[in-house]
Design a binder for these strands. Structure first.
Length: 485
RNA sequence: GGCGGGUUCGUCUAAUGGUCAGGACAAGAGGCUUUCAAUCUCUGAAUGUUGGGUUCAACUCCCACACCCGUCACCA
């Protein structure tokens, strides 16, 4: 299976944004190349002129780069098997198709689109289960072909399919798949506009570029046997195929653009951290050997094994993805998390005289999505209006009256803290708590409320005090006392 | 409809003839705690609610059936 250097390719069509299912295919493709010390090639399949979207190629580059899926050969970085954009390879395909015609394995077809449509309608009306081309031009006399060509009648090139027997196709995951040749259509190789069809261009390019492992979506499984016939016609070796199942929205629907969140960019916008996205989608349709499921891309390469790939569709679960995201964020070194979190903090917090390191420490274990951060720190700039009801806490046995008492005690204690840091605030407060023999919550719950005005905060009263600084802390305590009297 | 493929807790999956069918997310209960956060502990939850066969033994192999997905383009 790996007797020659592994070469894999990711071959997207520039028709829009990067779909998450497509990205997963890219991830698997990349991983296989890296895992076996091979090359990862990027090829742009733009043979459908009508569906081409301006800027889509740049989007592909950008997404792959952000994800760390670096390619060894491709349109922008070059390579010895270029060009890597199919529209620039037009002549190559035509040359190979014409070779097949000369060998009697393909033929010019002058049938109009209208004729084919009519044919299919008739077949449907006759309740035929098969709708194939009737091979009208398959055995046209040579003179007629020549005459038509000279007259400039538009044509396509079709492959002659065998009319009997079976074709066997092999997939690493699915094993041998055998189909009856009678169901095979004389497929079009070159379209009337001179562009190759996807099927044809794929075979030519994969062969010419020395691709050893083809990873692609499951939707190609049914048409796969046709490929073998093409390889056979040229006398080429067939690469290994790995078809991966779809990512589903639910049991009966694929994750599609209609769901609004099927694109890579959508997830980034929602606050997902890129390595976590990669990690999660890799887990959709693939399972590691051990019980750990948190991996960076490099770790995935290390951990990957084809036998872990699944043959059944996987339903996308945003909750699990969120959990994995949170875990990735938690594992980040302090400074790395700070770098990532800062832009989100800055969205609602303009102050820079606060203790960011304490804030980061409080935030890091509590962040599931990066976008939550902005809302979590919005009390720092200005204390929001809040209701005294927040001072009620059943478990802590606090209420507005006990809170007023507690804040009055806290104020002079904190005023006495000369070097303002988390540790000193903590020991000053706890000394007082011990002295008075009260519950921690008696003092700390009101402090947290007075400093934040929020029911939920990154950290408790001591951390908030450390973050806000002495002056701001004391001023907010005063505000709390005033509001309670 | 023909053809191809698939089917284990709600979800992702492990177990490729022998395990109390395991883990993670989610859910529920509890502990700790300065929060409804974080963390820890525990619980419930599945082999297609099908039917046959092979075998000492079937989630695993075979045959039906059911359901789901894909495909049948001058789209990829």
């Amino acid at each position: 299976m790996f007797d020659k250097k592994v070469r894999t390719r990711f071959a997207p069509s520039p028709t829009g944004f990067m779909h998450i299912g497509n990205l997963r295919t890219a991830v698997f493709t990349y991983i296989i190349a890296r895992k076996y010390g091979g090359d990862f090639i990027l090829r742009i399949e733009d043979t459908d002129l009508e569906r081409y979207v301006e800027g889509a190629v740049d989007k592909i580059y950008e997404t792959l780069r952000v994800c760390g899926l670096n390619w060894d050969e491709g349109p922008d970085v070059g390579g010895e098997f270029g060009p890597y954009i199919q529209s620039e390879r037009k002549d190559i395909y035509i040359r190979y198709a014409e070779q097949l015609v000369r060998d009697g394995k393909a033929y010019y077809c002058f049938c109009t689109k209208e004729r084919i449509d009519r044919l299919h309608e008739e077949q449907a009306a006759a309740n035929l289960s098969l709708r194939t081309y009737d091979r009208h031009c398959r055995d046209l006399p040579e003179e007629e072909v020549k005459a038509n060509l000279e007259k400039g009648i538009p044509y396509v090139i079709r492959q002659k399919m065998p009319t009997e027997g079976t074709t066997t196709f092999h997939d690493i995951l699915y094993g041998d798949i055998v189909v009856d040749n009678t169901i095979l259509d004389d497929q079009i190789l070159i379209k009337a506009d001179g562009m190759p069809t996807y099927n044809f261009a794929n075979v030519i390019d994969d062969h010419l570029m020395g691709i050893t492992h083809v990873v692609r979506g499951n939707e190609y499984l049914s048409s796969a046997p046709k490929y073998n016939l093409l390889y056979e016609a040229f006398g080429w070796d067939v690469p290994e195929y790995i078809h991966v199942e779809h990512i589903m929205r639910d049991a009966t629907h694929k994750l599609s653009k209609r769901d609004g969140d099927a694109y890579f960019g959508d997830f980034v916008e929602k606050g997902f951290y890129v390595p976590a996205i990669i990690n999660y989608i890799a887990l959709l349709g693939w399972a590691p050997k051990g019980e750990n499921e948190i991996f960076t891309l490099d770790e995935l390469v290390n951990e990957f094994d084809i036998s872990g790939l699944s043959k059944s569709p996987a339903i996308f679960d945003i909750q699990k993805m969120t959990a994995i995201n949170a875990e990735h964020l938690r594992r980040l070194p302090h400074d790395e998390f700070k770098k990532i979190a800062m832009p989100f903090i800055k969205k609602t917090c303009s102050r820079d005289d606060i203790d960011f390191d304490v804030l980061i420490n409080a935030l890091q274990p509590r962040t599931e999505l990066l976008t939550e951060i902005s809302e979590k720190v919005d009390f720092i700039d200005a204390l929001p209006e809040y209701s005294n009801d927040l001072y009620f806490n059943k478990k802590m046995k606090t209420n507005p009256e006990t809170a007023a008492e507690a804040l009055a005690i806290i104020k002079p204690v904190l005023e006495g803290v000369s070097e303002w840091n988390e540790e000193n605030i903590h020991s000053a407060l706890f000394a007082e708590i011990e002295k008075r023999g009260v519950k921690n919550g008696f003092m700390l719950w009101p402090l947290r409320v007075a400093l934040s005005g929020k029911p939920l905060t990154p950290g408790g009263g001591i951390e908030l005090a450390a973050i806000l600084g002495k002056a701001e802390t004391l001023s907010r305590i005063d505000k709390g006392i005033a509001q309670l009297s």
